[in-house]
Write a protein that binds this DNA or RNA. Structure first.
Lengths: 352, 352
DNA sequence: TACTCTGTCGGAAACCTTTCGGACGGTCAA
DNA sequence: TTGACCGTCCGAAAGGTTTCCGACAGAGTA
């Protein structure tokens, strides 16, 4: 593996323009890019320079500039595993959209880093290629964490709690607990008293899942309802396990799934098992996306404003890069509940 | 808008290592990065250099290297409008995944360009920041097209036909016509004779839509069926228009939607209007994704191998960048039909 | 002894921009 | 007349690599 460098591009450089016009490169730089401290140039000279640049089709070399300025105007978005974007909930896509739109608006560029580059992500900013990072998955290697928390690297955590010790990291997140409160209020308001919280095997201990569950428990309690151990269900093979669960007549009249995909699958399995939603069973999910509009029935779900969140994260990162102190170190967005067709007044005794 | 450059990073450089060990920077470069033509260094010296590098925590400066080598090991993926990724079909997500995975595997990096950078995309490779481009939307400005077709810029078109005049551009695509043949065979095999092709307003003239329609027409003809003008429907407001269409009793027993989202919406509207799928109406879509698994009923759809296609595109681009002649200038992938639950034997006379 | 290799490395240019300190000529006021 | 000051610009260093050309010492050969 020894990639060859390319030959000279033959592109026109600052110097060639300087020679053409008969001035110094400093003057040209000043006129064309507005850079350079106290260098000043008369209008006439400026015109001549601009003219020559146009005539010779000058193209600035961004690398040389970056090398000199130690800035690339590019930030990295780091994922755990890029495949998850494709397989996972639409959540990540909206995140990508939000980050990208805000960066582009500010003439920054975006590069994508994935788990195989994970250890390399900080290296990439250290080696000058990136001005900052947005984490949507915190790194686990101690070494990487340390580099991140050293504070030398501008970065913000988007919906992933940074390690507790790190007080310096900006954290943009959504109010998972508040989202669960909305669900609790909605379902209890419809008369539901026996409600199940559904998790996916392997995701029980993610910060999101825990926060949503905790919030749900708390706010049910506020309504005088205890979320018992048997009310928290973890499915690993939903197809089979939902069937036996629904056959068990547990008496639940509503079901709150920790994420959107899980909820969609529950709807599907309900249909399969002949459980009518919402007549016999109300279903709520977390993460309200276009996806929820096409399920049958349309899914009632908590919507976290992921795009605005992503935009805010990008905005703060840019501030950090420009050297401004961030306006806040922890920005938490409220959720709203999109009520659609999968929830209704509680049936007498749940699934018949 | 005058972003300030940062101060010196204080990072260790090649030169400092050279001084520490008492050799030239050329030797250090050779040992640490394997670069540099005929420079050779003894094992002992190499060990000393590596040792010093480790001790001083040397971090190579990628920008300096890129400036010198005229290579950045980064390629750009250019979208028409990044928002479409979020709003649109999952198609783009899988594309992103494919491109990214292949690039990462080869230690390249990926940056995302969107329509606002569109004219700037080629500029970005000209100014040295990118080694090549993958277009998933062809630029329309003549000026940009010209730059692209000049052949100086390594690039490949992914599922978007490059302008005819450009014989130099590599084109990776899926066999839309073949996909439509699968649909024709499947539906005719189930006894359908009156089939509608459904388009979305504003998308009728996209290359994809035209190819799918043309292929469908051709292959229906092979079965002795003419696709009449009235069989090609364009919905702009699907909710209202589907209702009146289904009320019109056109006698169609099957419906082929030009893309996945359209098909999903048709399913939804059918449910709303009381049209039973697949008993009264069979529905087929184009682009088989996880989405199709959760509709009710699960959607029969043509699957284009978008991820492998994207990987192939990336692979070819890397060849181009490394200076190899591409193995092919036009790579076309076959589609398959994922038969699910939205198609069945034709009913007597279509919608009752 | 004179010579050619071969292995090991140094020196310096090149890549292209930005920035710093100062030069130079002129105006203006005391 | 002299000093301060301003507008305009230059020269050179700096940023960190990679690569070309050639040097130098020792080994082998005729």
């Amino acid at each position: 593996m020894s990639p060859k460098g390319r030959q000279r591009t033959g592109a026109i450089t600052l110097r060639e323009i300087a020679e053409e016009v008969g001035v110094s490169t400093a003057a040209v730089s000043k006129v064309l890019h507005g850079r350079g401290g106290n260098v000043r140039v008369s209008d006439a000279t400026a015109v001549a320079i601009r003219d020559a640049a146009q005539r010779l089709r000058y193209t600035p070399n961004a690398l040389a500039r970056s090398l000199r300025m130690n800035r690339t105007f590019t930030v990295g978005l780091v994922f755990e595993n890029f495949g998850e974007i494709a397989a996972g909930p639409l959540y990540y896509v909206h995140m990508l959209d939000g980050v990208a739109s805000e960066l582009f608006r500010n003439h920054y560029r975006l590069t994508i880093l994935s788990e195989i580059d994970h250890g390399r992500a900080v290296e990439t900013v250290c080696d000058g290629r990136l001005d900052g990072l947005i984490w949507c998955k915190m790194p686990e290697q101690a070494e990487v964490q340390q580099a991140v928390m050293s504070g030398k690297i501008p970065c913000v955590a988007l919906n992933v709690p940074p390690p507790k010790e790190s007080l310096g990291i900006v954290y943009v997140s959504c109010d998972n607990e508040g989202g669960s409160r909305l669900v609790a209020d909605h379902l209890v308001g419809l008369g539901h008293r026996r409600i199940a919280f559904v998790l996916e095997k392997g995701e029980e201990s993610t910060p999101d899942a825990r926060a949503r569950l905790a919030g749900f428990r708390t706010h049910l309690a506020a309504h005088g309802i205890d979320l018992l151990e048997e009310d928290v269900i973890t499915f690993s093979n939903t197809a089979a396990e939902f069937r036996s669960w629904s056959a068990a007549r547990t008496g639940h009249t509503a079901l709150y799934a920790w994420n959107e995909r899980m909820a969609a699958e529950i709807l599907h399995r309900s249909h399969e098992c002949g459980v009518r939603v919402p007549q016999e069973l109300s279903v709520v999910g977390f993460d309200s996306t276009q996806f929820c509009e096409t399920t049958i029935p349309r899914l009632t779900a908590v919507r976290q404003p992921i795009k605005p969140m992503a935009q805010e994260a990008a905005r703060i990162l840019l501030d950090l890069i420009e050297g401004c102190a961030p306006s806040t170190y922890s920005s938490r967005f409220p959720c709203v509940l999109d009520v659609r067709d999968s929830t209704a007044v509680a049936s007498a005794a749940g699934i018949r």
